[in-house]
Design a protein around this nucleic acid. Structure first.
Length: 283
DNA sequence: ACCCAGGCGGGCG
DNA sequence: CGCCCGCATGGG
């Protein structure tokens, strides 16, 4: 069994894992030892991070090298990203506080399910519910004949379950959205077919999924398809934008979106992740 | 007890 | 259209 070491620069595993992205909800992270595990198709991926955010390395099974490099967007040049988005003091403060926090790139259905669950919910419970769905309905994963975990359940599998099955997982009123979205993505919309489309076209298609509105569609576009111009506006982003850039005045979502596009353009997604996480910690 | 959570869909004016 | 409200449930 061979391992690869992937060298990293400007990569902080802790901030990246913990910042309410799909990995926050379905991976296991041992922060003290820098060990991350998560399911990917028929394997449990294990990543050992050493070093710091400036210079470090990731030790992975050779078979997972591409998956891990893609998942953490290691080919993004963060110096360029920061140069692009640090257009004001607040954003400079945010990037200085969480240097090396990356956006992640995840499977579209996995992302869709996580963010349907995220609506009007808190991080802890989103995680508990996601884990419960995986543990009950995910395909078993074996290594050398030993059960080592479960994978992310497909739309086909979840579409066959009852709404009450998702209630039992703690999904609350979102249970019917999960059922409907799984049905819809099995019968009417192949999420794989959206790859390669523009941000605008991707979002338009995603909005036809039951339980997916503007914010969740932007999260899927950003973290499921890598559309970096997507700018999800949730309660924290709205609150922080109003406080920092609009003198505390209440603004409509469209006005906030316009300013974000002016300030951060094609890197708005990265700006949003820093704005969200920094703003959230500040209260 | 009370408020809030990475919002959405439906109904009303 | 735009606005407003209910929504399941657990954590702080």
């Amino acid at each position: 069994m061979g391992y690869d070491n992937i060298t990293t620069s400007c990569f902080n595993m802790k901030h990246t894992i913990e910042s309410a992205q799909p990995l926050t909800f379905h991976s296991d992270y041992d922060a003290a030892n820098g060990i991350l595990t998560y399911p990917k198709e028929d394997r449990i991926v294990t990543v050992r991070h050493s070093g710091d955010h400036e210079k470090g390395s990731l030790r992975v099974d050779r078979r997972d090298r591409k998956e891990v490099a893609g998942r953490f967007r290691l080919s993004d040049n963060m110096d360029k990203v920061y140069a692009y988005i640090e257009t004001d003091a607040f954003m400079k403060g945010a990037t200085a506080r969480y240097p090396g926090m990356r956006l992640t790139l995840n499977d579209p259905w996995e992302t869709t399910l996580c963010f349907i669950l995220s609506q009007f919910n808190n991080v802890k419970r989103i995680r508990a519910t996601t884990k419960s769905i995986i543990n009950r309905f995910g395909p078993k994963i074996y290594s050398d004949g030993v059960l080592v975990g479960r994978g992310f359940p497909s739309t086909e599998v979840l579409q066959k379950r009852k709404v009450s099955d998702f209630v039992a997982c703690g999904a609350g009123y979102r249970a019917r959205y999960i059922k409907a979205a799984a049905e819809y993505c099995t019968e009417n919309l192949d999420l794989e077919s959206l790859r390669g489309k523009s941000y605008e076209d991707t979002k338009e298609e995603l909005l036809t999924i039951p339980g997916v509105g503007s914010k969740v569609a932007d999260c899927i576009a950003l973290m499921g398809y890598g559309k970096l111009e997507a700018f999800p506006i949730d309660t924290w982003v709205k609150r922080t934008m109003e406080r920092v850039y609009f003198g505390g005045r209440t603004k409509k979502e469209e006005a906030i979106r316009e300013l974000a596009f002016e300030k951060w353009g094609r890197m708005a997604g990265y700006a949003q992740q820093y704005l969200f996480w920094h703003g959230r910690q500040q209260g």
